[in-house]
Design a protein around this nucleic acid. Structure first.
Lengths: 150, 150
DNA sequence: ATTCCAACATTGGCTTCGCCAACGATAGCG
DNA sequence: CGCTATCGTTGGCGAAGCCAATGTTGGAAT
């Protein structure tokens, strides 16, 4: 008699299923650890984009992070509420806001970067460093193929 | 001047981000192709479990497929509406329904299995057969670690 | 046998996430 | 001057996963 919680073979070997499962665990771990640091994935994405590319408009941030303009608004409101970013009107283009990361924001980003490192570790525990590299390379090629050619 | 839609480096190299992106593309492709065959992922999971393990109660199906009991109800309603499964009360335990896959259901499952093969192909286009195996093995180990130890 | 707890199917609702539509304001171009 | 596009913002939609409550039934303990 098959155990009640056995996963069908047609699923457990298909890459799409595996990727979905991996993403599920990944997302779960990330949400847990980030919420322990009072943050969400959106916050990290936005802060990282700000630190890497400098001040930018909200629309540009959305494009870079893959976050919808409307969701950027909400996330930036939260970040501004904690003093991690600042919103100021662009004198050169009065439609735009210029978003700047504050020193506190940089600190918080660094903290979250550490947390994110722990998350990778927690997710990839069973893999050696070389295997993690291998996985990263394979996934990069898959993702690249579907993002550039689109 | 950095292009407006450049992805921050802190993201594009982290496995969690890559897995998330891959899952996104995977999910998009799967939804597209399956909806062209008038099906959803839930349907495939349930039919596959039924074919592999034979008739089962709804709760057992939910456990095997990882679908919540309440969502199993809705999905089975849809499948029953198309004559792909049959619901009959269990004489031995009147709390249970016994779900049986019909011949039409088996046909449809076989069809969807083909579609799923095409989906794997579409997703993993840039990878050789050996690389797909490698990816599958790596992901399997990651997923196993987080499902067994939980 | 009665009592109490667990499992079942079902309904309904909640949250997150990604997305889209609309709006008023502004910019740039013909 | 229009016309079109972009910007920030609000509001809402749909899918997915999850949880709670309900009425029913089984099974085990007392």
């Amino acid at each position: 008699m098959t155990a009640d919680d056995t996963v069908p073979a047609l699923l457990k070997e298909t890459p799409t299923w595996l990727i979905g499962q991996a993403a599920m665990h990944s997302h779960r771990i990330l949400t847990e650890r980030f919420s322990a640091a009072d943050a969400r994935g959106y916050h990290y994405r936005l802060l990282a984009a700000l630190k890497e590319f400098g001040p930018a408009s909200q629309a540009a941030l959305g494009r870079r992070t893959g976050i919808d303009r409307s969701d950027v608004v909400a996330a930036l409101n939260e970040l501004a509420g904690k003093g991690l970013i600042e919103r100021s009107p662009d004198p050169a283009d009065r439609r735009r806001n210029i978003i700047t990361i504050t020193p506190a924001g940089v600190d918080h980003l660094d903290c979250l970067t550490d947390v994110l490192g722990e998350i990778q570790d927690a997710l990839l525990t069973p893999l050696s460093a070389a295997e993690r590299d291998q996985l990263t390379r394979l996934l990069t090629r898959v993702v690249d193929h579907h993002t550039t050619r689109r």
